[in-house]
Amino acid sequence: MSPVVKGRAVIGALAAAGIAAVFGVAFVEATGDRAVHPFPTVGVLMANGEHWCTASVVDSPKGNVVATAAHCVAPAGEDGQPGDAAHDGLAIGELAFAPAFSGEGSGTRPLGLWKVRSIHVDDRWTKWGDETADFAFLTVEPDGDGRSVQDRVGRDEAPKPDWTSGYEREVTVVGYPEPDRNPQNKPVSCTTQTRHDEDDPAMLYISCSGFWTGTSGSPWIADRGGPGRPGRLIGVLSGGDTDVDSTAALYDERAKALYDQAARG
């Protein structure tokens, strides 16, 4: 069974509550020029200025790499040919990343808006629509002061990627449902155990409520210990048949190759 992707225009079915999901992860008092936030590296991936998916900063030498789902940035291919449109049939548009996004309406961008310079996606996705390759890495440009996005969100807050993870891990997953179900534009988070997806054992699976449309690309972070202990990124949310059921493609050596390309950008 193919999971329903959770990008902007795909609505999941209403389902029973999951495990340990928490809506409305709150900001606390700002310190200096950077708002303190429990997940400063996670934010909204915007297309033409509107909420499109979720994305997050991943640790990199230059501090310029953001992780999200492949279907958020590139059409799925079929039979070896590139696709024509994004998952919802629309053009993807100009991409930018707003970490720690929050607030009604157009929301606030306390850590800035970062232009996406380049995207890096596996051809297993762009030619064949292979769900086990539904991950992407983005290179983002520095801000006007020459700072990297990782420096802006906190150099020690970004998880390191894990290319050899097993399927059974405790993970924290953080995402931004679209405004129709989340008018305050606050992130939803869940800490729970992963396992093989029953419908596709090659995919990771979690059961947590609240991961509606807009949460595609949400980071799955293992071994997270709070501020200064950011853990290991093992994949990003790819799909799921309801807001409770979520899947992710486990990072592998092909994901590492994409990351390396993005980090050089």
Rank of each mutant, 00 (worst) to 15 (best):
P40H: 10
G32N: 08
D243H: 14
Q81N: 03
G83I: 06
A248S: 13
T215P: 07
V66D: 01
S246M: 12
D245T: 08
R181L: 12
T31K: 13
W212H: 12
T132Y: 04
L45K: 05
T247V: 13
A70P: 13
G43R: 04
A248G: 04
H71N: 15
G112H: 02
N48R: 01
S165G: 15
D243F: 07
V171K: 12
G226D: 11
G103W: 04
D123L: 03
V153G: 03
V4C: 09
E131M: 14
I206R: 08
A20G: 03
A85E: 13
G210T: 07
M46F: 01
Y259W: 14
E29C: 00
A17G: 07
E253N: 13
V25T: 10
D156K: 04
A86N: 14
A263D: 10
L45Q: 04
V173P: 02
A86F: 11
E168S: 13
Y167W: 07
W52M: 05
A67G: 04
A17I: 12
K62T: 03
D145C: 04
D130F: 04
P159G: 07
A9T: 10
V58R: 02
T247G: 14
V65P: 07
S189P: 00
V149F: 02
G239W: 06
V236A: 10
V28Y: 02
M1Y: 11
A158P: 02
P201M: 02
C53I: 06
V36M: 08
W128F: 14
Q184T: 10
T242R: 04
C190M: 10
V28I: 11
V149C: 03
A16N: 06
T242H: 03
H196I: 00
T192P: 03
M46T: 11
V10R: 13
R264M: 03
C53V: 05
P142G: 02
P82H: 04
P142K: 05
S238V: 10
G107E: 05
D180Y: 08
L111S: 00
C72A: 15
L237Y: 03
H87E: 15
D199P: 01
V10Q: 14
P75G: 11
P201Y: 00
D180M: 11
H196N: 10
D79M: 06
G32L: 04
P227W: 05
D59K: 11
I19T: 14
L258W: 05
G7C: 09
K127W: 01
V28A: 05
L258Q: 15
R155W: 13
L113H: 00
T194S: 14
P99M: 04
D260K: 15
D130M: 07
L233W: 09
P142L: 03
V188H: 00
L138E: 06
F101M: 12
G105C: 08
R147A: 11
S207D: 13
G231P: 06
V58Q: 02
T191S: 12
R254Q: 06
C190N: 08
L90G: 00
P61D: 01
G80H: 05
A13H: 07
A202C: 01
N48W: 02
S148K: 03
A67D: 04
T41W: 02
C53W: 01
